[in-house]
Design a protein around this nucleic acid. Structure first.
Length: 479
RNA sequence: GGUCUCGUAGUAUAGCGGUUAGUACAUCGGGUUUUCAUCCCGACAAUGCGGGUUCGACUCCCGCCGAGAUCACCA
């Protein structure tokens, strides 16, 4: 049987780090088994609906490369993929349950229900609505909620991650199937949809584990074969032991994109947070993940989100792309991340800058803060030179002389390329009898006035003869 | 409170009835002619507690403790 997985978010906002894994794992499993992943939008709660959230979700999945085989935009044989458009289907299933005596219309006012609930809380007993089941129930009609009629019993099932599970009758209840507004609850809608859409693996967060017996009861009452159940442990917030949510400042996935994180790194990090293949491999391409993925190696406990490791991994990916695909490939990714001043320069020049700076980047947005002096003359800040730990021992006249000697030598250079520049620098070191730390720091700072920069010969070769000499001269005059 | 789940270094994890308990991030130290970074080398650091079973337990069993989930006309 073909593997069919699904990602079924509610359009209530953006997808964040804490919940995107329930899209990643279904994708990996479906691709590995040549199956399909369905994207289904669970928009039955009209109060929490957020305009534009569906687009945000689609955008996020596309960026990560998690392409769905059926769903919004691409369509498919089980359309529509918005639950709000599938009311008739849920009602059809609801009538089946009414006909078999497993569902009843419940006219009890919500204030009354609330009172029952509070009684239970006061008595410290679990609230089970089936203990308050009304005696005479009316015909079901719009405006009256429809409830499942539980027939509590012992349930056993297997969870692909958590293992063999069991639950007693005490957790099964008369859950609401259809709300008074006519929309189904999640509890009912997802059962119907998964069955209609042929979903074979239901993957979702562990918070649904407790309600699984109710779902099992529903499958039985509807005569639906149980899909495989996969509970995904939570991703924990950096502080405390709570699952990572928007309240803990969980950033949206696309926010990382805008900060210059590569989708490869994001996918890699998230997939490996709470899952591993038993080897010591750390860096995985999407294809490698698809190949290596397995449900039974998903961790059973929650995993804490660690942004530092994500950024480390992003650095690894930045370098990997440069090493394997070359500067052009990385340059294509660097689109909106250059400083304003870079726009007056050619692609070719920016590529040269990228080629010597890339191994210093954690994210592409670091380009903004780290490359300014390649595109515009930096402001001369003599304090940076005189306070430098290697240069503060030298007097102003010594600094000036050292700089002038360097300028003279560099001016005489006929081929302004990295190798020749290195030769001149080495020669200069010998002739001036200065330590590398002194000579190089002076030139480096005079050219960049930046806290750090690439190797001196590379920086000068990219900057070019005219700019380099002009900057050195300007500093020599200023001292 | 009922029910369920989880518990290896700061973090993510490997492992297994017998290992010097492995790896990565982080941290600290060192190296690669300046800085920052990359890269390389090294250091620190863990089986929640208590009982069993066993020649031997991180591993199996029980209890405890700790943490989390759930008990909505939200998903």
């Amino acid at each position: 049987m073909e593997t069919v997985t699904r990602f079924a978010p509610s359009p209530t906002g953006y997808i964040h780090i804490g919940n995107v894994r329930s899209a990643i794992y279904p994708y990996l499993l479906a691709k590995q088994q040549n199956g399909k992943m369905i994207l289904r939008i669970e928009d039955t709660d009209r109060e929490r609906y957020v305009e534009g959230a569906t687009e945000l979700i689609e955008d996020t999945l596309e960026w990560l490369g998690l392409n769905w085989d059926e769903g919004p935009i691409v369509g498919g044989p089980h359309a529509p993929y918005f639950q709000s458009e599938r009311k008739a289907i849920y009602h059809k299933y609801a009538r089946k349950l009414i006909a078999s005596g497993r569902a009843y219309a419940d006219p009890t006012p919500s204030t009354q229900i609330e009172q029952y609930r509070q009684e239970c809380n006061a008595n410290k007993t679990p609230f089970l609505y089936r203990n308050y089941r009304p005696d005479n129930t009316p015909e079901w009609e719009p405006g009256i909620p429809l409830r499942f009629k539980a027939e509590p019993k012992e349930y056993q099932w297997h969870d692909e991650v958590m293992g063999d599970m069991h639950a007693g009758p005490e957790v099964q209840d008369d859950i609401v199937l259809i709300k008074k507004d006519g929309f189904p609850t999640y509890n009912f809608a997802h059962i119907v949809d998964d069955a209609e859409m042929g979903v074979t693996h239901v993957m979702r967060g562990v918070e649904y584990l407790s309600s699984t017996p109710n779902y099992l009861a529903l499958y039985d009452a509807l005569g639906i074969k149980r899909p495989k159940l996969v509970s995904l442990p939570h991703i924990l917030a950096p502080q405390g032991n709570k699952k990572l949510g928007k309240r803990d400042g969980a950033k949206s996935v696309t926010e990382y994109r805008d900060d210059g994180v590569l989708p490869e790194a994001m996918l890699n990090y998230l997939a490996c947070l709470g899952w591993n293949d038993g080897t010591e491999q750390e860096i995985y391409t999407k294809d490698e993940l698809i190949k290596a993925f397995s449900l039974d190696r998903i961790q059973t406990s929650g995993a804490r989100y660690d942004e530092t490791k994500l950024l480390w991994m992003n650095g690894q990916w930045l370098r990997r792309i440069m090493d394997e695909q070359g500067v052009n490939a990385l340059y294509e990714r660097s689109g909106g991340f250059w400083p304003e001043t870079a726009h007056n320069h050619t692609d070719e020049y920016r590529k040269q800058v990228l080629a010597i700076i890339y191994d210093r980047l954690k994210t592409l947005s670091d380009l903004r803060s780290m490359t300014g002096y390649f595109f515009a003359d930096p402001e001369i800040d003599l304090d940076m030179i005189t306070n430098n730990k290697f240069l503060k021992k030298l007097s102003e006249s010594e600094l000036e002389e050292l700089l002038k000697t360097s300028i003279a030598r560099l001016s005489a250079l006929s081929h302004w390329d990295a190798d020749s520049l290195q030769d001149v620098l080495n020669q200069l070191l010998q002739d001036t009898d200065r330590k590398p730390a002194e000579l190089f720091s002076l030139i480096r700072l005079s050219l960049s006035f930046a806290p750090f920069s690439p190797a001196l010969n590379l920086t000068m070769s990219v900057l070019g003869r005219d700019t380099s000499l002009a900057r050195l001269n300007a500093v020599a005059r200023a001292i």
